[in-house]
Amino acid sequence: MNTSSETTLIPAREGFYFPAEWHPHVATWLSWPHTEASWTRERQELMFPAYIDFIKAIAESEQVCINAHNEIVMQAAKLRLLAAGADLSRITLLPHPTNDSWCRDHGPAFLINPEKKQRMIVNWGYNAWGNKYPPYDRDDLIPVQIAHYRGLEYVTPGIIMEGGSVEFNGAGTVLTSRACLLNQNRNSHLKQADIERYLCDYYGVQQVLWVEEGIVGDDTDGHIDDTVRFVNEDTVLAAYEPNPNDDNYTFLQEIHRELRAMLLPNGKQLNIVELPMPDPVFSDGLRLPASYANFLITNGAVIVPTFRCDKDQQALDIIGLYFPDRKIIGIDSTDIVWGLGSFHCLSQQEPAI
Rank of each mutant, 00 (worst) to 15 (best):
S5H: 14
T7E: 14
T8M: 14
L9V: 13
L9H: 07
L9C: 13
A12N: 01
E14K: 13
Y17Q: 04
Y17R: 03
W29L: 14
L30C: 07
S31N: 02
P33F: 04
R43F: 04
Q44M: 14
E45R: 09
F54P: 00
I55N: 02
I55A: 06
K56C: 13
E60L: 13
V64W: 10
V64Q: 09
I66L: 09
I66C: 03
A77M: 05
K78M: 10
L81N: 04
L81E: 03
L82A: 11
A84E: 09
I91L: 15
L93T: 05
P95D: 08
P97C: 04
D100G: 02
C103K: 05
D105H: 03
H106T: 07
F110G: 00
I112V: 15
I112Q: 02
N113W: 09
K117A: 15
G125Q: 07
N127G: 09
N127A: 04
A128V: 10
R138I: 05
I142G: 01
V144D: 07
A147D: 11
Y149A: 11
G151Q: 06
G151E: 08
E153M: 09
E162H: 11
A171W: 02
R178V: 10
C180P: 00
C180I: 02
N185G: 07
R186S: 15
K191H: 14
Q192L: 10
Y202W: 13
G204C: 08
Q206K: 15
V208D: 00
V211D: 07
E212D: 08
E212K: 06
D221Q: 03
H223V: 09
D226E: 15
V231N: 07
N232S: 11
V236Y: 05
Y240M: 03
P242E: 13
N243V: 12
F251N: 06
A261L: 15
A261W: 05
L263F: 14
L264P: 04
N266A: 06
L275Q: 00
L275R: 02
D284F: 14
L288Q: 06
I297C: 11
P305I: 10
D310W: 12
K311A: 15
I319C: 02
I319R: 00
P324L: 13
R326A: 09
K327L: 10
I328W: 05
I331D: 04
S333G: 13
V337R: 00
V337M: 02
W338N: 11
G341C: 11
L346N: 01
Q348I: 12
P351I: 14
A352Y: 03
